Amino acid sequence: MKISGSAFDDLARAEFTPTSTFLNTASNGLLPARAVTALHEAARLRAEGRPLTSLYEDVEACRAAYARLAGVPAGRVALGASVAAHTGLIAASLPAGAEVLTAEGDFTSVLNAFHVRGDLKVRTVPLERIAESVRPGTALVAVSAVQSADGRIADLPALREAARAHGARTYVDFSQSAGWLPMDAGAHDFSAAVSFKWLLGPHGAAFLVVPEDFGGLTPLLAGWVAGERPWESTYGPVAEYAHSARRFDLTHALFTFAGLRRSLDLIEELGVAAVHAHDVALADRFRAGLASLGHQPVPAPGSAIVSVPGLGSRQPRLSEAGIEVSDRAGNLRAAFHLYNTAAEVDRLLDALAG
């Protein structure tokens, strides 16, 4: 059963002990206490030379937990280290001359590999026009569900319908939304997300969701863990790849998955719907306070990320005062998550007013 209200707040307070007003989850999330404990325990296994069996169990638990959050079968989820690597795998699968449609100013990891190919037609349009810009001959549309720079939310249902109408595939980066915004990865051909932002895990893990038929991907980066029987695939070429998306797995960062398992447990305990309501309420409080100060943020209704033009230069001074936000292209970016409170929003507003 999901929790809310005071129970939600009590659990968040018990799990997180920041020493600052941390409003910077769009850069990296805080680690909950249970994840820190798991990381220590994993390190102790290595230090003491004990079997690592439980760490491999953590890997599969993370795959299953992310699949539940994404709304897809676990067999569609591959595990890697970064969104950039996942994008590279998708880029490598496209034929020369294929058109890839992207959004202006999107995060580098979701689009750079298509440019590096050199023989693809990469077309870039404003985020608000991406659905209407899909056309006959578009092979793939690659976009972040939520823009890192300013929190704008893509109209994914409209994009999916446009892609279907023109026979294009879709690739969505959920890195800035997984954990606070309800996710329907099954509506898209490919999607990815990192673990260390809103999912509250350590660095070093990223998820990739692929179609049941693998969407034409080749396991170019695969090693022994991608075999149907991994421990029989440790020498020589892999004789039989996993029959699931695990064929695209990269060697697992075991410590990372040990901590991430507990972070994902926390997200599921709280429930994404409750986290969403909490996060957006704080962001809306900040937007209202900005208006009273005469500041206009980048329009991003319904987002947990708020970006304020012209205030990015305030970031160093705010950090000195114990308030952590980001400077992105001259804009001050604040990102609100489950461990934040209304009092912290007000503290940031007071600092900006001063």
Rank of each mutant, 00 (worst) to 15 (best):
D9Y: 12
D10I: 06
T19G: 15
S20P: 06
N24K: 11
N24T: 05
L30C: 11
L31R: 09
P32R: 12
A43N: 12
S54G: 13
S54R: 15
V59T: 07
R68N: 04
R68S: 03
R76L: 04
L89I: 01
I90A: 04
A92H: 10
L94C: 06
G105A: 13
A113G: 10
V116M: 15
R117G: 09
R117V: 00
V122K: 13
R123P: 00
E128K: 08
I130D: 09
A131P: 03
S144W: 07
Q147D: 00
Q147L: 00
A154H: 15
L159F: 00
L159V: 11
A168C: 06
T170W: 11
A178C: 08
A192H: 10
K197E: 06
W198A: 08
L199C: 08
G204N: 08
G215P: 08
G215C: 10
T218Q: 10
L220T: 01
G227C: 03
R229E: 05
W231Q: 14
E232M: 05
Y241R: 10
H243D: 13
R246L: 04
R247E: 01
F248I: 04
D249Q: 06
T251R: 08
A253W: 14
D279F: 00
D284A: 01
D284P: 00
P297W: 00
P299W: 00
V308M: 02
P309Q: 13
A321P: 02
V325P: 05
S326I: 03
D327S: 14
A329Y: 14
F336Y: 05
L352S: 01
A353M: 04
